[in-house]
Design a protein around this nucleic acid. Structure first.
Lengths: 216, 216
DNA sequence: TATAAAGTAGGGGGAAACCCCGAAAAAACA
DNA sequence: TGTTTTTTCGGGGTTTCCCCCTACTTTATA
Protein backbone atom coordinates (compact mmCIF):
# COMPACT_ATOMS: atom_id res chain seq x y z
CA UNK A 1 0.00 0.00 0.00
CA UNK A 2 1.42 3.36 -1.05
CA UNK A 3 0.85 6.03 1.56
CA UNK A 4 0.41 9.31 -0.25
CA UNK A 5 0.16 12.94 0.82
CA UNK A 6 -1.19 15.72 -1.37
CA UNK A 7 0.02 19.30 -0.86
CA UNK A 8 -1.66 21.96 -2.93
CA UNK A 9 -3.38 25.18 -1.99
CA UNK A 10 -6.25 24.55 -4.39
CA UNK A 11 -8.76 22.55 -2.43
CA UNK A 12 -10.67 21.59 -5.49
CA UNK A 13 -7.55 20.18 -7.02
CA UNK A 14 -6.70 18.25 -3.87
CA UNK A 15 -10.21 16.84 -3.74
CA UNK A 16 -9.95 15.88 -7.38
CA UNK A 17 -6.69 14.02 -6.96
CA UNK A 18 -8.01 12.44 -3.79
CA UNK A 19 -11.04 11.24 -5.66
CA UNK A 20 -8.91 9.80 -8.46
CA UNK A 21 -6.56 7.98 -6.12
CA UNK A 22 -8.91 6.50 -3.54
CA UNK A 23 -10.37 4.30 -6.24
CA UNK A 24 -6.98 2.65 -6.61
CA UNK A 25 -6.44 -0.31 -4.34
CA UNK A 26 -2.73 0.12 -3.87
CA UNK A 27 -2.80 3.81 -3.03
CA UNK A 28 -3.95 5.33 0.22
CA UNK A 29 -4.28 9.09 0.54
CA UNK A 30 -3.21 9.63 4.14
CA UNK A 31 -2.88 13.40 4.12
CA UNK A 32 -4.12 16.55 2.48
CA UNK A 33 -2.18 19.75 3.06
CA UNK A 34 -2.89 23.23 1.81
CA UNK A 35 0.32 25.06 2.56
CA UNK A 36 4.03 24.52 3.14
CA UNK A 37 4.36 24.56 6.93
CA UNK A 38 1.44 22.23 7.54
CA UNK A 39 2.90 19.82 5.00
CA UNK A 40 6.16 19.71 6.92
CA UNK A 41 4.33 19.29 10.21
CA UNK A 42 2.20 16.50 8.84
CA UNK A 43 5.21 14.61 7.52
CA UNK A 44 6.99 14.91 10.85
CA UNK A 45 4.10 13.35 12.65
CA UNK A 46 3.04 10.78 10.08
CA UNK A 47 4.62 8.23 7.80
CA UNK A 48 4.25 8.60 4.06
CA UNK A 49 5.80 7.16 0.93
CA UNK A 50 4.96 9.75 -1.65
CA UNK A 51 4.35 13.48 -1.49
CA UNK A 52 2.52 15.10 -4.37
CA UNK A 53 3.82 18.62 -3.99
CA UNK A 54 2.65 21.73 -5.78
CA UNK A 55 5.64 23.84 -6.81
CA UNK A 56 3.78 27.10 -6.46
CA UNK A 57 2.53 26.92 -2.93
CA UNK A 58 1.83 30.36 -1.51
CA UNK A 59 3.99 31.60 1.32
CA UNK A 60 6.47 28.80 1.63
CA UNK A 61 7.03 27.53 -1.89
CA UNK A 62 7.14 23.88 -2.86
CA UNK A 63 10.83 24.28 -3.51
CA UNK A 64 11.43 25.37 0.09
CA UNK A 65 9.35 22.47 1.37
CA UNK A 66 11.42 20.11 -0.72
CA UNK A 67 14.66 21.60 0.54
CA UNK A 68 13.60 21.36 4.17
CA UNK A 69 12.48 17.76 3.81
CA UNK A 70 15.80 16.76 2.31
CA UNK A 71 17.71 18.55 5.07
CA UNK A 72 15.75 16.56 7.61
CA UNK A 73 16.54 13.43 5.64
CA UNK A 74 12.89 12.62 5.32
CA UNK A 75 12.41 9.31 3.50
CA UNK A 76 9.38 10.56 1.59
CA UNK A 77 9.62 10.56 -2.19
CA UNK A 78 8.53 13.78 -3.80
CA UNK A 79 6.67 14.27 -7.03
CA UNK A 80 6.44 17.96 -7.95
CA UNK A 81 3.28 19.11 -9.65
CA UNK A 82 3.00 22.40 -11.45
CA UNK A 83 0.91 24.37 -13.85
CA UNK A 84 4.01 25.51 -15.62
CA UNK A 85 6.66 23.79 -17.64
CA UNK A 86 9.14 26.39 -16.49
CA UNK A 87 12.78 25.48 -16.76
CA UNK A 88 13.70 27.36 -13.60
CA UNK A 89 11.05 25.55 -11.57
CA UNK A 90 11.95 22.16 -12.93
CA UNK A 91 15.68 22.41 -12.41
CA UNK A 92 15.42 24.03 -9.02
CA UNK A 93 13.10 21.48 -7.49
CA UNK A 94 14.99 18.59 -9.02
CA UNK A 95 18.20 19.98 -7.56
CA UNK A 96 16.46 19.94 -4.23
CA UNK A 97 15.64 16.29 -4.25
CA UNK A 98 12.36 15.78 -6.04
CA UNK A 99 12.06 12.43 -7.80
CA UNK A 100 9.44 13.46 -10.30
CA UNK A 101 7.90 16.45 -12.02
CA UNK A 102 4.53 16.31 -13.69
CA UNK A 103 2.32 18.98 -15.13
CA UNK A 104 -1.25 19.61 -14.13
CA UNK A 105 -2.31 19.11 -17.71
CA UNK A 106 -1.39 15.45 -17.58
CA UNK A 107 -4.16 12.92 -17.15
CA UNK A 108 -5.20 10.38 -14.58
CA UNK A 109 -3.25 7.55 -16.21
CA UNK A 110 0.01 9.43 -16.21
CA UNK A 111 -0.48 10.49 -12.61
CA UNK A 112 -0.88 6.88 -11.54
CA UNK A 113 2.11 5.86 -13.63
CA UNK A 114 4.20 8.60 -12.05
CA UNK A 115 3.26 7.55 -8.53
CA UNK A 116 4.04 3.88 -9.12
CA UNK A 117 7.26 4.62 -10.96
CA UNK A 118 8.58 6.89 -8.23
CA UNK A 119 7.46 4.48 -5.52
CA UNK A 120 9.50 1.82 -7.32
CA UNK A 121 12.58 4.00 -6.92
CA UNK A 122 12.81 5.44 -10.41
CA UNK A 123 12.40 9.07 -11.36
CA UNK A 124 9.47 10.14 -13.47
CA UNK A 125 8.96 13.18 -15.65
CA UNK A 126 6.30 14.22 -18.10
CA UNK A 127 7.48 14.16 -21.70
CA UNK A 128 7.25 17.93 -22.01
CA UNK A 129 9.25 18.33 -18.85
CA UNK A 130 12.01 16.08 -20.14
CA UNK A 131 12.30 18.27 -23.20
CA UNK A 132 12.50 21.36 -21.04
CA UNK A 133 15.30 19.87 -18.99
CA UNK A 134 17.21 18.91 -22.10
CA UNK A 135 16.83 22.40 -23.45
CA UNK A 136 18.25 23.75 -20.20
CA UNK A 137 21.26 21.44 -20.40
CA UNK A 138 21.92 22.47 -23.97
CA UNK A 139 21.97 26.10 -22.91
CA UNK A 140 24.52 25.42 -20.19
CA UNK A 141 26.90 23.94 -22.71
CA UNK A 142 27.84 27.39 -23.92
CA UNK A 143 25.55 27.56 -26.91
CA UNK A 144 27.22 24.88 -28.96
CA UNK A 145 24.23 24.97 -31.27
CA UNK A 146 24.11 28.73 -31.40
CA UNK A 147 26.38 29.75 -34.23
CA UNK A 148 26.68 33.53 -34.27
CA UNK A 149 26.16 34.20 -30.61
CA UNK A 150 29.14 32.88 -28.75
CA UNK A 151 29.13 34.43 -25.35
CA UNK A 152 32.24 36.23 -24.17
CA UNK A 153 32.71 36.86 -20.50
CA UNK A 154 31.67 40.17 -19.11
CA UNK A 155 34.04 41.58 -16.52
CA UNK A 156 33.09 42.54 -12.97
CA UNK A 157 33.18 46.27 -13.66
CA UNK A 158 31.29 45.89 -16.90
CA UNK A 159 28.56 44.03 -15.05
CA UNK A 160 28.29 46.86 -12.57
CA UNK A 161 27.92 49.36 -15.38
CA UNK A 162 25.49 47.13 -17.21
CA UNK A 163 23.35 46.76 -14.12
CA UNK A 164 23.09 50.53 -13.78
CA UNK A 165 22.29 50.95 -17.48
CA UNK A 166 19.43 48.51 -17.06
CA UNK A 167 18.29 50.56 -14.08
CA UNK A 168 17.98 53.54 -16.42
CA UNK A 169 20.92 55.56 -15.14
CA UNK A 170 22.76 57.78 -17.60
CA UNK A 171 26.46 57.54 -18.23
CA UNK A 172 27.04 60.63 -16.13
CA UNK A 173 25.07 59.21 -13.22
CA UNK A 174 26.86 55.89 -13.45
CA UNK A 175 30.20 57.68 -13.35
CA UNK A 176 29.17 59.47 -10.17
CA UNK A 177 27.86 56.33 -8.56
CA UNK A 178 31.02 54.38 -9.25
CA UNK A 179 33.35 57.33 -8.55
CA UNK A 180 34.96 57.09 -11.96
CA UNK A 181 35.21 59.33 -14.97
CA UNK A 182 32.50 59.71 -17.58
CA UNK A 183 35.02 58.52 -20.14
CA UNK A 184 35.66 55.34 -18.25
CA UNK A 185 32.00 54.53 -18.18
CA UNK A 186 31.80 55.25 -21.90
CA UNK A 187 34.69 52.89 -22.37
CA UNK A 188 32.83 50.14 -20.51
CA UNK A 189 29.71 50.87 -22.49
CA UNK A 190 31.45 50.35 -25.79
CA UNK A 191 33.10 47.19 -24.53
CA UNK A 192 29.67 45.93 -23.56
CA UNK A 193 28.20 46.86 -26.93
CA UNK A 194 31.01 44.98 -28.64
CA UNK A 195 30.96 41.95 -26.36
CA UNK A 196 27.20 41.51 -26.35
CA UNK A 197 27.03 42.40 -30.02
CA UNK A 198 24.47 45.11 -29.45
CA UNK A 199 23.88 48.28 -31.41
CA UNK A 200 22.60 50.46 -28.59
CA UNK A 201 21.56 50.40 -24.96
CA UNK A 202 18.14 49.01 -25.82
CA UNK A 203 19.86 45.96 -27.26
CA UNK A 204 22.21 45.85 -24.31
CA UNK A 205 19.27 45.57 -21.94
CA UNK A 206 17.44 42.99 -24.04
CA UNK A 207 20.48 40.77 -24.49
CA UNK A 208 21.46 41.10 -20.84
CA UNK A 209 17.99 40.12 -19.65
CA UNK A 210 17.51 37.35 -22.20
CA UNK A 211 20.85 35.77 -21.43
CA UNK A 212 20.79 36.52 -17.73
CA UNK A 213 24.20 38.12 -17.92
CA UNK A 214 23.87 39.63 -14.46
CA UNK A 215 23.14 36.34 -12.77
CA UNK A 216 26.11 34.38 -11.36
CA UNK B 1 -30.34 14.72 -13.72
CA UNK B 2 -27.97 17.64 -14.27
CA UNK B 3 -26.02 17.27 -17.51
CA UNK B 4 -22.64 18.86 -16.98
CA UNK B 5 -19.69 19.72 -19.22
CA UNK B 6 -16.20 20.48 -17.98
CA UNK B 7 -13.91 22.74 -20.01
CA UNK B 8 -10.36 23.11 -18.74
CA UNK B 9 -7.03 22.60 -20.40
CA UNK B 10 -5.59 20.80 -17.41
CA UNK B 11 -6.45 17.17 -17.90
CA UNK B 12 -5.66 16.27 -14.35
CA UNK B 13 -8.04 18.90 -13.12
CA UNK B 14 -10.80 17.70 -15.45
CA UNK B 15 -10.27 14.15 -14.31
CA UNK B 16 -10.42 15.28 -10.72
CA UNK B 17 -13.69 17.15 -11.10
CA UNK B 18 -15.07 14.26 -13.12
CA UNK B 19 -14.14 11.91 -10.34
CA UNK B 20 -15.80 14.12 -7.73
CA UNK B 21 -19.00 14.54 -9.69
CA UNK B 22 -19.67 11.06 -10.99
CA UNK B 23 -20.21 9.90 -7.42
CA UNK B 24 -23.19 12.24 -7.22
CA UNK B 25 -26.46 10.70 -8.28
CA UNK B 26 -28.02 13.84 -9.66
CA UNK B 27 -25.06 14.96 -11.77
CA UNK B 28 -23.94 13.42 -15.02
CA UNK B 29 -20.69 14.54 -16.62
CA UNK B 30 -21.57 14.36 -20.30
CA UNK B 31 -18.56 16.16 -21.74
CA UNK B 32 -14.92 16.96 -21.15
CA UNK B 33 -13.32 19.66 -23.27
CA UNK B 34 -9.76 20.88 -23.26
CA UNK B 35 -9.96 24.07 -25.31
CA UNK B 36 -12.38 26.77 -26.41
CA UNK B 37 -13.35 25.71 -29.93
CA UNK B 38 -14.00 22.09 -29.00
CA UNK B 39 -16.19 23.27 -26.12
CA UNK B 40 -18.32 25.29 -28.52
CA UNK B 41 -18.51 22.39 -30.96
CA UNK B 42 -19.51 19.97 -28.23
CA UNK B 43 -22.28 22.24 -26.98
CA UNK B 44 -23.66 22.67 -30.49
CA UNK B 45 -23.95 18.95 -30.94
CA UNK B 46 -25.00 17.97 -27.44
CA UNK B 47 -27.41 19.10 -24.77
CA UNK B 48 -26.09 20.27 -21.44
CA UNK B 49 -27.36 22.13 -18.40
CA UNK B 50 -24.19 23.39 -16.84
CA UNK B 51 -20.80 24.31 -18.22
CA UNK B 52 -17.89 24.43 -15.81
CA UNK B 53 -15.66 26.79 -17.73
CA UNK B 54 -12.07 27.67 -17.00
CA UNK B 55 -11.51 31.40 -17.48
CA UNK B 56 -7.94 31.00 -18.61
CA UNK B 57 -8.27 28.59 -21.48
CA UNK B 58 -5.33 28.88 -23.88
CA UNK B 59 -5.99 30.17 -27.36
CA UNK B 60 -9.63 31.08 -27.14
CA UNK B 61 -10.19 32.29 -23.59
CA UNK B 62 -13.10 31.28 -21.41
CA UNK B 63 -14.43 34.80 -21.74
CA UNK B 64 -14.61 34.44 -25.52
CA UNK B 65 -16.31 31.07 -25.18
CA UNK B 66 -18.86 32.63 -22.85
CA UNK B 67 -19.48 35.51 -25.23
CA UNK B 68 -19.97 33.21 -28.21
CA UNK B 69 -22.38 30.96 -26.32
CA UNK B 70 -24.52 33.90 -25.29
CA UNK B 71 -24.56 35.26 -28.85
CA UNK B 72 -25.84 31.91 -30.01
CA UNK B 73 -28.43 32.01 -27.25
CA UNK B 74 -27.24 28.73 -25.89
CA UNK B 75 -29.38 27.65 -22.92
CA UNK B 76 -26.40 26.28 -21.02
CA UNK B 77 -25.69 27.85 -17.64
CA UNK B 78 -22.08 28.78 -17.13
CA UNK B 79 -20.02 28.55 -13.98
CA UNK B 80 -16.62 30.15 -14.44
CA UNK B 81 -13.71 28.54 -12.66
CA UNK B 82 -10.39 30.24 -12.19
CA UNK B 83 -7.16 30.10 -10.29
CA UNK B 84 -7.30 33.81 -9.79
CA UNK B 85 -9.59 36.07 -7.87
CA UNK B 86 -8.85 38.78 -10.39
CA UNK B 87 -11.33 41.57 -10.58
CA UNK B 88 -10.94 41.99 -14.33
CA UNK B 89 -11.64 38.29 -14.95
CA UNK B 90 -14.62 38.21 -12.65
CA UNK B 91 -16.36 41.30 -13.98
CA UNK B 92 -15.65 40.50 -17.60
CA UNK B 93 -17.00 36.98 -17.57
CA UNK B 94 -20.02 38.00 -15.52
CA UNK B 95 -20.74 40.75 -18.03
CA UNK B 96 -20.70 38.06 -20.67
CA UNK B 97 -23.38 35.95 -19.13
CA UNK B 98 -21.77 33.60 -16.63
CA UNK B 99 -24.07 32.64 -13.75
CA UNK B 100 -21.33 31.74 -11.31
CA UNK B 101 -17.69 32.23 -10.53
CA UNK B 102 -15.77 29.93 -8.25
CA UNK B 103 -12.12 29.63 -7.45
CA UNK B 104 -10.05 26.51 -7.83
CA UNK B 105 -9.17 26.70 -4.17
CA UNK B 106 -12.74 25.98 -3.14
CA UNK B 107 -13.60 22.50 -2.02
CA UNK B 108 -15.81 19.67 -3.17
CA UNK B 109 -18.78 20.76 -1.08
CA UNK B 110 -18.81 24.27 -2.45
CA UNK B 111 -18.46 23.01 -5.99
CA UNK B 112 -21.55 20.84 -5.56
CA UNK B 113 -23.40 23.72 -3.95
CA UNK B 114 -22.48 26.02 -6.81
CA UNK B 115 -23.69 23.54 -9.41
CA UNK B 116 -27.02 22.94 -7.71
CA UNK B 117 -27.58 26.63 -7.00
CA UNK B 118 -26.92 27.67 -10.58
CA UNK B 119 -29.02 24.78 -11.91
CA UNK B 120 -31.84 26.11 -9.75
CA UNK B 121 -31.65 29.42 -11.55
CA UNK B 122 -29.73 31.45 -8.97
CA UNK B 123 -26.26 32.88 -9.37
CA UNK B 124 -23.45 31.59 -7.22
CA UNK B 125 -20.14 33.13 -6.26
CA UNK B 126 -17.41 32.15 -3.85
CA UNK B 127 -17.21 34.39 -0.81
CA UNK B 128 -13.84 35.77 -1.86
CA UNK B 129 -15.20 36.52 -5.29
CA UNK B 130 -18.13 38.45 -3.87
CA UNK B 131 -15.70 40.59 -1.96
CA UNK B 132 -13.67 41.21 -5.06
CA UNK B 133 -16.74 42.31 -6.98
CA UNK B 134 -17.73 44.66 -4.18
CA UNK B 135 -14.25 46.10 -4.14
CA UNK B 136 -14.49 46.67 -7.87
CA UNK B 137 -17.77 48.50 -7.51
CA UNK B 138 -16.32 50.69 -4.78
CA UNK B 139 -13.45 51.60 -7.05
CA UNK B 140 -15.73 52.62 -9.87
CA UNK B 141 -17.45 55.12 -7.64
CA UNK B 142 -14.26 56.73 -6.52
CA UNK B 143 -13.12 56.80 -10.10
CA UNK B 144 -9.49 56.83 -11.00
CA UNK B 145 -7.20 56.20 -8.10
CA UNK B 146 -5.62 53.28 -9.85
CA UNK B 147 -2.17 54.41 -10.78
CA UNK B 148 0.61 52.09 -9.82
CA UNK B 149 -1.05 48.72 -9.70
CA UNK B 150 -2.71 48.49 -13.06
CA UNK B 151 -0.62 48.65 -16.15
CA UNK B 152 -1.41 51.48 -18.51
CA UNK B 153 -2.56 50.21 -21.85
CA UNK B 154 -0.12 50.48 -24.69
CA UNK B 155 -1.72 51.09 -28.06
CA UNK B 156 -1.29 48.89 -31.12
CA UNK B 157 1.08 51.29 -32.86
CA UNK B 158 3.06 51.91 -29.70
CA UNK B 159 3.57 48.19 -29.35
CA UNK B 160 4.89 48.00 -32.89
CA UNK B 161 7.35 50.77 -32.18
CA UNK B 162 8.30 49.26 -28.83
CA UNK B 163 8.97 45.91 -30.46
CA UNK B 164 11.37 47.52 -32.93
CA UNK B 165 13.10 49.49 -30.19
CA UNK B 166 13.72 46.25 -28.34
CA UNK B 167 15.10 44.84 -31.58
CA UNK B 168 17.68 47.62 -31.54
CA UNK B 169 16.36 49.65 -34.43
CA UNK B 170 16.91 53.40 -34.34
CA UNK B 171 14.07 55.90 -34.61
CA UNK B 172 15.00 56.56 -38.23
CA UNK B 173 14.95 52.87 -39.09
CA UNK B 174 11.65 52.35 -37.34
CA UNK B 175 10.15 55.23 -39.31
CA UNK B 176 11.28 53.61 -42.55
CA UNK B 177 9.99 50.21 -41.53
CA UNK B 178 6.56 51.52 -40.60
CA UNK B 179 6.38 54.01 -43.48
CA UNK B 180 5.82 56.93 -41.13
CA UNK B 181 7.71 60.07 -40.27
CA UNK B 182 10.64 60.22 -37.89
CA UNK B 183 8.64 62.68 -35.83
CA UNK B 184 5.76 60.28 -35.49
CA UNK B 185 8.05 57.60 -34.17
CA UNK B 186 9.51 60.10 -31.74
CA UNK B 187 5.99 60.90 -30.65
CA UNK B 188 5.29 57.23 -29.96
CA UNK B 189 8.59 56.94 -28.16
CA UNK B 190 7.75 59.71 -25.74
CA UNK B 191 4.28 58.30 -25.18
CA UNK B 192 5.90 54.98 -24.33
CA UNK B 193 8.37 56.61 -21.96
CA UNK B 194 5.52 58.38 -20.20
CA UNK B 195 3.20 55.38 -20.07
CA UNK B 196 5.79 52.90 -18.91
CA UNK B 197 7.34 55.50 -16.64
CA UNK B 198 10.78 55.03 -18.09
CA UNK B 199 13.62 57.51 -18.40
CA UNK B 200 15.23 56.17 -21.55
CA UNK B 201 15.13 53.32 -24.02
CA UNK B 202 17.09 51.06 -21.70
CA UNK B 203 14.28 51.37 -19.17
CA UNK B 204 11.72 50.93 -21.90
CA UNK B 205 13.23 47.59 -22.82
CA UNK B 206 13.56 46.42 -19.24
CA UNK B 207 10.02 47.35 -18.28
CA UNK B 208 8.60 45.90 -21.47
CA UNK B 209 10.37 42.59 -20.96
CA UNK B 210 9.68 42.39 -17.23
CA UNK B 211 6.00 43.10 -17.67
CA UNK B 212 5.60 41.21 -20.92
CA UNK B 213 4.00 44.22 -22.56
CA UNK B 214 4.33 42.71 -26.03
CA UNK B 215 2.51 39.54 -25.18
CA UNK B 216 -1.21 39.48 -25.99
C1' DT C 1 -23.01 62.99 -32.20
C1' DA C 2 -19.87 64.88 -29.10
C1' DT C 3 -15.77 63.64 -26.73
C1' DA C 4 -11.75 61.08 -26.12
C1' DA C 5 -7.98 58.53 -27.70
C1' DA C 6 -4.81 57.27 -31.13
C1' DG C 7 -2.06 58.26 -35.05
C1' DT C 8 0.09 61.45 -37.75
C1' DA C 9 3.70 65.25 -38.27
C1' DG C 10 6.50 69.34 -37.68
C1' DG C 11 10.21 72.99 -35.51
C1' DG C 12 13.86 73.55 -32.57
C1' DG C 13 17.15 72.51 -28.96
C1' DG C 14 19.92 70.25 -25.46
C1' DA C 15 21.48 66.03 -23.50
C1' DA C 16 22.94 61.53 -24.01
C1' DA C 17 24.76 57.96 -26.54
C1' DC C 18 27.91 56.23 -29.69
C1' DC C 19 32.36 56.17 -32.38
C1' DC C 20 37.06 57.10 -33.67
C1' DC C 21 41.60 57.68 -31.94
C1' DG C 22 45.18 56.73 -28.17
C1' DA C 23 47.38 55.54 -23.63
C1' DA C 24 48.75 54.42 -18.92
C1' DA C 25 48.20 52.39 -14.50
C1' DA C 26 46.31 48.22 -11.96
C1' DA C 27 45.09 43.67 -11.52
C1' DA C 28 45.02 39.03 -12.88
C1' DC C 29 47.20 35.15 -14.83
C1' DA C 30 50.64 31.96 -16.44
C1' DT D 1 58.49 37.34 -14.01
C1' DG D 2 56.51 38.68 -18.07
C1' DT D 3 52.14 38.83 -20.49
C1' DT D 4 47.38 39.63 -20.78
C1' DT D 5 43.30 41.62 -19.28
C1' DT D 6 40.99 44.95 -16.88
C1' DT D 7 40.30 49.42 -15.47
C1' DT D 8 41.22 53.84 -15.89
C1' DC D 9 41.03 58.41 -18.68
C1' DG D 10 41.51 61.84 -22.34
C1' DG D 11 40.25 64.69 -27.08
C1' DG D 12 37.03 65.39 -30.62
C1' DG D 13 33.42 64.17 -33.42
C1' DT D 14 28.61 62.39 -35.28
C1' DT D 15 24.36 60.36 -34.41
C1' DT D 16 20.56 59.34 -31.73
C1' DC D 17 17.65 60.21 -28.18
C1' DC D 18 14.73 62.93 -25.40
C1' DC D 19 12.13 67.10 -24.50
C1' DC D 20 9.39 71.20 -25.24
C1' DC D 21 5.79 72.92 -28.08
C1' DT D 22 1.78 72.77 -31.50
C1' DA D 23 -1.74 70.73 -34.72
C1' DC D 24 -4.36 68.11 -37.90
C1' DT D 25 -6.77 63.60 -39.14
C1' DT D 26 -8.61 59.29 -38.02
C1' DT D 27 -10.73 56.09 -35.11
C1' DA D 28 -12.99 54.45 -30.87
C1' DT D 29 -16.17 55.09 -27.41
C1' DA D 30 -19.68 57.00 -24.47
Amino acid sequence: MIKLVIADDHTMFVDGIDSILTIENDIDVVGRCYDGPSTLKFLEENEADILLLDVNLPGMSGIDVCKTLKEKESPVKIIAISMFNEESFVTEILNNGAQGYILKNTGREELLKAIRTVEGGTSYFSKDVTQTIMKGLMKQRKGSNKSSKFFPKVSRREKEVLKLIIEEFTTQEIAEKLFISLKTVESHRSSLLAKLNARNSAGLVRIALENKVLEN
